[in-house]
């Protein structure tokens, strides 16, 4: 199956699993991080029940991402219904993950994913309460959050060797994803976190510039892992989130500047 077919297949399964009329009427469809589907599929494809493994891990990720949307300041008006339902949507998606695994009697995966949630919430709290002087130090910490569940699955399916490369690859794709969101004027939790925790990042332009810089850093880090067999399996240039021409040009300009 081509990666795009894999993504579509799991996208459909995820949407079907979390279908709930009232939530759909009031909330936008949750963002599905398609790069994680690809990584999970490649890690799990030779294991039994691999479909359940990819689906439930993605549900946990979506549940936690949904809760990230709860703003720090509560909007004390009637529109708060959306915020209230966002809390419940995250709880609902978590419930579905547990329900699916309980019904397929996969108790070990329930425990692995619960452990992933537990570690991820601790990492998130660490990032919230930190004050970063450089984007690089932020990136290093955020990578742990970004890759937590997928790395848990890599360990679960005995593919620990994949962790160093996959972790960087996921972060690279996440930044491409965030650049796409920025170009659509969608402000995400990640953008907010950058503004709140990294010094000298206050507006969208600075976020865009810093994200492009992050891509550069990660590209170099991925190159350092060039002997890794996972580099051939998970292509850095896999075109999941086509970033804006302006952003691509900016990268080229940077490189040109360097060559001069």
């Amino acid at each position: 199956m081509k990666y795009i077919e894999v993504i579509n297949h799991y996208n459909d399964q995820i949407k079907e699993s979390i279908k709930q009329v009232y939530l759909q009427q009031h909330l936008e469809q949750p963002q599905i991080e398609e790069h994680k589907i690809v990584a999970l599929h490649l890690l799990a494809q030779t294991t039994k029940n691999h479909e359940n493994l990819v689906l439930t891990t993605m549900l946990v990720q979506i549940a936690l991402n949904t809760h990230d949307q709860i703003s720090t300041q509560y909007e004390d008006n009637i529109n708060s219904t959306q915020q209230q339902l966002t809390v419940l949507a995250g709880d609902y998606y978590s419930g579905i993950y547990y329900h699916l695994l309980a019904n397929s009697n996969d108790l070990s995966l329930i425990s692995v994913l619960a452990d992933g949630i537990n570690e991820m919430t601790q990492e998130k709290m660490h990032v919230y309460y930190n004050d970063y002087h450089t984007i690089k130090s932020f990136l290093d910490d955020f990578e742990k959050i970004e890759s937590k569940l997928v790395i848990k699955i890599a360990n679960f399916v005995n593919k620990d060797d994949a962790s160093p490369y996959i972790s960087k690859w996921l972060m690279y794709k996440r930044i491409e994803f965030e650049l796409v969101q920025l170009s659509k004027n969608h402000h995400t939790f990640f953008h907010q976190l950058l503004k709140e925790t990294v010094q000298n990042i206050h507006d969208s332009n600075q976020i865009e510039n810093s994200l492009i810089l992050c891509l550069e850093i990660l590209e170099n880090e991925l190159l350092k892992l060039k002997s890794d067999k996972w580099m051939d399996i998970l292509d850095k240039d896999l075109d999941i989130y086509p970033i804006h021409d302006k952003q691509k040009n900016w990268k080229i300009m940077l490189e040109e500047g360097l060559s001069q």
């Binding site: 809760h67 709860i70 720090t72 809390v87 995250g90 978590s94 537990n118 919430t121």
Partner: peptide, 14 residues
């Protein structure tokens, strides 16, 4: 704040 409450709930649930 709300974010800490959300994370605490998710943590305890896990």
């Amino acid at each position: 704040d709300n974010q800490v409450a959300m994370l605490t709930g998710d943590y305890i649930f896990a």
